[in-house]
Amino acid sequence: MPGPELPTAPDAGPAHGACTSCAIYNSANLRKLGVETGTYDYVAAVAGNPNTGKSTVFNALTGLRQHVGNWPGKTVARAEGGFHYHGHGYKLVDLPGTYSLLSTSNDEEIARDFLLFGRPDVTIAVVDATRLERNLNLVLQILQITDRVVVALNLMDESERHGITIDVRHLARELGVPVTPMAARKGQGVPELLESVEQVARGTVATRAHRVKHRDPRLERAVDVLAGQLQQTFPGLPSTRWVALRLLEGDPGTEQAVRDGTLGDLGRGIAGPEATSARPTGTAAR
């Protein structure tokens, strides 16, 4: 399978010579670090619906053996590992599966909070190519909060077996972020995924995430006002527009977190104290 065409800036790859998109070259540059994340430059989150192969992708990149099995809900807490690629350290965070950032169970909350408030430099959205329509719900929700997304279109072997063909270039263009087809269990597509993750992390490819628009301009204005107030009350809090929308919906959990101030702790706490000190060249100033 040919590598995916990035949605924008076709010649914006890193300056590593001619063979940077060549699979063997890329894999040779991957050093799996297991749990030894040490210091790192970038944090990448692995998110997606349950049972889409997130832990399989995580294991392929870190060399770890996170629990993998053929039923949903295996990963119930966040697992961390690391890898080194083209001279940069990455911390990778494997998240529990979730269908939505909106209505959530306990494991789903772990994933939601990390995506919203953990400030990952890249989010790898692992999707099941045999159930694309269902999986895109979460992808679109993630694209509402960040541009720094790579879609890992996994289980391509299964979808081919079912006779499903996916227009990957078109999908990438519509979503506005790179889409890499893969069959993670066989290691297929891993080099291309690495390349896209690096490009998004380092900002060498311009992504322009598809944003679902709200129909009513009054709603947009209300979100602007509330998000501004949240920014003042909780300085540095990410995803304030998302939080503002939940408040406008009257979501009880969000209202409570604002009232008792735990919302601010979410914004500070999740990356962990070690994460801020150990990121010499990260993008903390975003």
Partner: peptide, 12 residues
């Protein structure tokens, strides 16, 4: 309405 509606929508 509310959370219950959200849940149904998230189930597709």
């Amino acid at each position: 309405r509310g959370v219950q509606r959200r849940r149904l929508m998230d189930l597709g």
